[in-house]
Simulated assay, not measured.
Amino acid sequence: MTVRKGDKVRVIAGKDKGKEGKVLRAYPEKQRVVVENVHMIKKATRPSQRNPQGGIVEMEGTIHVSNVMLVCPNCGQPTRVGRRREDGVRIRVCKKCGKDIDK
């Protein structure tokens, strides 16, 4: 997957198209990511020690990784991601400005 936890992404498809946010969690085996304040769902929870009242909690749901595009930290544009090997380590590269995404 070209998107990792902590990356800034822009949603390019779906009901939240155009929103930007940080990737909170990535599930590579399912090809899905959780982005902050995107695809908010309501979930019914039972009373617990942390939440003694229980009730309905609003939280971020997962969206497919094909519906998000990485925002380059250098040029600030949503971009496709290229890969390059350097000393056996894969480095992600911005296709628009050509600079490294990974430091």
Rank of each mutant, 00 (worst) to 15 (best):
M1P: 13
T2V: 12
T2L: 05
V3N: 03
R4G: 06
R4W: 06
R4P: 01
K5M: 14
K5R: 15
G6V: 05
G6Q: 09
D7T: 05
K8E: 11
K8N: 08
V9R: 00
V9E: 00
I12D: 01
A13I: 05
G14D: 06
K15L: 11
K17S: 02
K17C: 07
K17P: 01
G18F: 09
G18M: 09
K19T: 07
E20F: 01
G21D: 04
V23C: 08
L24P: 00
L24A: 06
R25C: 02
A26Q: 04
A26I: 03
A26L: 00
A26G: 01
Y27I: 03
Y27D: 15
P28M: 11
E29Y: 10
K30D: 11
V33K: 02
V34L: 14
V34P: 00
V35E: 02
V35L: 13
E36G: 06
N37Y: 14
V38G: 01
V38C: 07
M40L: 15
M40F: 07
I41T: 13
I41P: 03
K42W: 10
K42N: 13
A44P: 01
P47H: 05
P47L: 06
S48I: 05
Q49D: 08
R50Q: 13
R50V: 10
P52R: 03
P52A: 05
Q53I: 07
G54Q: 10
G55L: 09
I56G: 06
I56L: 15
V57E: 15
V57I: 15
V57K: 14
M59W: 05
G61S: 11
T62I: 03
I63L: 14
I63P: 00
H64Y: 06
H64G: 12
V65Y: 07
S66F: 02
S66G: 04
S66Y: 05
N67F: 11
V68W: 00
M69G: 00
L70R: 01
C72P: 02
P73H: 05
P73R: 04
P73M: 12
G76E: 03
Q77L: 15
R80M: 08
R80V: 06
R80T: 09
R80P: 00
R85M: 13
E86G: 04
E86A: 13
D87V: 02
D87C: 04
G88Y: 05
R90M: 14
I91Q: 10
I91H: 08
R92A: 10
V93C: 01
V93Q: 06
C94P: 03
K95Q: 14
G98E: 06
G98A: 11
K99P: 01
K99H: 13
D100P: 02
D100L: 07
I101M: 04
I101L: 13
I101A: 03
I101V: 13
D102I: 12
D102C: 10
K103I: 04
K103T: 12
